[in-house]
Design a protein around this nucleic acid. Structure first.
Lengths: 209, 209
DNA sequence: ACCTGAACACCGTTCAAGT
DNA sequence: ACCTGAACACCGTTCAAGT
């Protein structure tokens, strides 16, 4: 019966969608969130949006291209969240780490499936240039933070690949466990304090003995 | 458990495979490793093994059941590797952590895609009971290790959900980054020393000041 | 430029039937 | 018990054609 176009909603655009690309991304994320990555189908997406099954190919070369684009928006939003966490925060390493850990873990919990997608896409060798840029943006945040801590004497000396990377590993590991639902419920926010304290102890300078 | 049976076709296998279940799992892992999870198809698996496309359904209810079973073997092998890492190792917290970190990261690097599968399956609410058991086996290893360290005074006091979980988060985060190929190449093994030192500092008791 | 509709090859799942 | 072969509904991708 669906031969007539866009009949249901009076305020619908012309026979082509208007901003199909954005609509596809948004709807895809919703499906991902609600039914998981295995349930994501281009044809169903098109059906939901009231366009033909071939329409998405005008905006995304193939399914993987849509997933890549979705992951990219995830990285960008993540970077935004991390950068925002550093605004109007006391300029000590402890305060900054506290803010960034809470922001990262919060994002991970609210966007667990998207985070999975982000990391699996990044794993892919054919990753786009934009994506590399977006990843760089938020690994830089941790780097800057650590370097600042080193200058102020709050963080032990050493190259970024050692100190910064390890701090990031803690951050990422805890967020990943939280997103995967592996943390006992009462630990989820309580545990954050311990993680932050752990990072501070682990990255503190040696005390003269 | 008869292994040899009457042959059927000219030179190939018998008409039923013999141990199709194990063959499916093994071949699925190989495909996963070589071509990634998106390229895994039950029909292709069956083709590769010379059985009809409907044969796998005798052993796995559906595709997800096969993936679950594959993830389970991953968890079991992981537990084996971790347990093996604790044999004939000096009985100090430092030595034990060193061994377990290297084992975990090593496994993660050699089985990156499988690890992804393991965590995505564990994320699934319909996870089997066997799987929960297998996960428990290796989170216990870290717990025992931390408790032992606490008794010997090498590790600060505190409940397992605080100290043990955080140690595990570092371990997991670094392994995940390594598996995802996010570590600069020269860091991969060099960085392990820093991670281990970080864990030791982070979990050490407070020094009287 | 943007989308449709038909076509193609492939997929997961089910099921009666064979051995 | 274990597997086959056909059938069904669905999928991703491509492409000539419409507007």
């Amino acid at each position: 019966m669906a031969v007539t176009l866009a009949p249901m909603h009076s305020r619908d655009r012309r026979y082509h969608h208007g901003d199909l690309r954005a609509a596809l991304l948004s709807r895809a994320e919703q499906t991902l969130r609600e039914k998981g990555p295995a349930a994501l189908s281009l044809r169903e997406l098109a059906r939901d949006l009231g366009v033909s099954h071939a329409a998405p190919s005008r905006h995304f070369k193939d399914k993987q291209a849509l997933l890549d684009a979705l992951a990219l928006t995830g990285f960008e939003r993540m970077a935004d969240v991390l950068e925002a966490s550093q605004e109007s925060v006391e300029e000590t390493f402890a305060a900054r780490i506290d803010a960034v850990v809470r922001a990262y873990v919060g994002f991970a919990q609210e966007n667990a499936v998207l985070l999975d997608l982000m990391y699996s896409v990044k794993h892919d060798p054919t990753a786009s240039e934009d994506l590399v840029v977006a990843v760089g943006r938020w690994s830089e945040i941790v780097e800057l933070l650590v370097e600042e801590g080193q200058r102020s004497g709050e963080v032990r000396e050493g190259p970024m690949e050692r100190v910064g990377l390890t701090v990031f590993a803690v951050l990422h590991g805890y967020a990943d466990l939280a997103a995967a639902g592996m943390l006992p419920p009462e630990v989820t926010e309580h545990g954050l304090d311990e993680v932050i304290a752990f990072i501070l102890r682990g990255s503190a300078p040696d005390r003269p003995s």
